[in-house]
Each structure stands twice: as C-alpha cells, then as structure tokens.
C-alpha cells in the first residue's frame, strides 16, 4: 500500500480552482520536491493531506485511510507559518509535543535547540520570526515520523540558515521515512531530492526521478523548471 495517495483530488474556492484533479502516489523512503511557483497549489495540496481543508472532490489516502487520528500520528508537518502559542516558553512547547506525540523525542530536540544557543526559558513571542521558524523545524524533525511534509522551509532565509535547515532535515529524518519538501527555490535543494513533482495552476504537470530528468534534459532541475514555466 502506498504511503500517500491522492485520487482525483480537487479543491475549489467558490469558482476558483485551487487544485484540479490531482493524482499522485508517494512511496516510502524518498525525498520528494514539490516544486511550483507561488500560488501554484502547493500549499493547498499540503493542507488537504493534513486535514486542514475539505476536498471539493476526490480523496487523500494515507496508508489507505483518509486523514484522521492515525494519519496524524505518522505525519510530521511543518506549515509555512508560525503555528505555536506565542505565550508559551520553549520548554513548554517541548513538553506539549512530548504529551501529544508518542514519536516525539525531547532529547535530540533539546540538543538541537542548545546548538542554536536558545534559552529554553524564553517565550516564543520574544523571539524573531526566523528563530521561531527554526524552533518549529526542530520540533517537526524530532519526531520519528513516516512522512515529513515541509512547506517552504527555505522561504526567505539567508544562505547560512538555508544550510542549517538542509542539514537539520538530512540528519534528522527517520530512516525509511519519506520527506515532501515544497519550494520555489530549487537550486538550493535539488541535490537532496530523489524525485520531483512540478505543479502549476493547480495541476501536476510532471513527476520524475530527479537524476532521470537531469539525464534526459541534460540540465539541472532548476533549469528545466525555468524552461517549463517560461512557455
């Protein structure tokens, strides 16, 4: 059974089609790039998988089941916004994750936070947005999940932070798990991808193993993506 499958998945807002008839299969043990411009439907697709939107038609299946308690146990999701209660201190947030997620490991999370010189007694509201995002990434990557879904983890950060984020992802994801990374910054990330999915105007226009695509087109994924969306 596929880890994740989307069948004829569509989402309309009033008349606007945010996602149209998406069919997709995500196997285990792969790092997958969900690549598209801003407003292409990446986030809509991700929100549907995470039970944050009701599909207009079609369905999402995780291990053969619709999103629910079971799927939430095995998916670790990083949204593109800050989603923690900002009145909480860092150690309170860690405790919160420990209480709700059986597969959350506090020790590695604490270690990673310490590497960032973070005071656990600090309130989230007292931190910069970039710092809050790092805390979230650490929390998400400290779960032993089957599927990690990271929505724009590299959006608007400096190159040093970008390296830190990629390192954190690569060194912490659970062995045998799959990772879906959505981004429009392809050059920075393409060498860690097994497979790529191009999405545009709510439709999947290409899925392929990354190296196969490079071989076929004799170009980088970034280059191919640019060519694809020029015309």
């Amino acid at each position: 059974m596929e880890l994740l499958e989307c069948k004829n998945l569509s989402k309309f807002y009033d008349k606007k089609e945010a996602l149209k008839d998406v069919n997709l299969k995500v196997p285990r043990g792969k790092i997958i790039g969900l690549l598209g411009k801003n407003g292409s439907g990446k986030t809509t697709l991700i929100k549907l998988i995470n039970d944050l939107l009701i599909p207009t038609s079609g369905e999402v299946l995780i291990n053969g089941e619709k999103p629910g308690v079971e799927s939430k146990k095995i998916i670790s999701y990083l949204p593109e916004r800050t989603y923690l209660d900002k009145d909480m201190k860092v150690n309170q947030v860690i405790k919160y994750f420990e209480e709700f997620y059986d597969n959350f490991n506090a020790d590695p999370a604490r270690k990673l936070l310490k590497d960032l010189d973070l005071d656990e007694e600090q309130k989230l509201s007292k931190m910069s947005k970039g710092m809050q995002e790092k805390v979230q990434l650490i929390l998400v990557m400290s779960r032993k999940a089957d599927l990690y879904i990271l929505d724009e983890p590299l959006g608007g950060v400096d190159p040093a932070t970008r390296d830190y984020i990629l390192d954190t992802i690569l060194s912490n994801f659970n062995e045998g798990a799959s990772v879906i990374i959505s981004t429009h910054l392809i050059a920075d990330i393409e060498r860690i991808l097994d497979e790529v999915i191009f999405i545009d105007k709510g439709k999947i226009i290409l899925t392929s193993p990354a190296d196969e695509l490079r071989n076929k087109e004799n170009a980088s994924i970034d280059e191919i993506f640019r060519r694809c969306f020029k015309c």
């Binding site: 995470n50 039970d51 944050l52 629910g68 308690v69 079971e70 939430k72 146990k73 998916i75 999701y77 949204p79 916004r81 800050t82 989603y83 923690l84 209660d85 709700f100 997620y101 059986d102």
Partner: peptide, 13 residues
C-alpha cells in the same frame, strides 16, 4: 487561525 495548523494536526479527533 494560525494555531489551527497545530490543533488539527495533533493525533486527536
């Protein structure tokens, strides 16, 4: 709102 991204992804019905 923003916190719903956490609430609705907790393993709770």
């Amino acid at each position: 709102k923003d916190e719903s991204y956490l609430t609705h992804t907790l393993p709770v019905s």
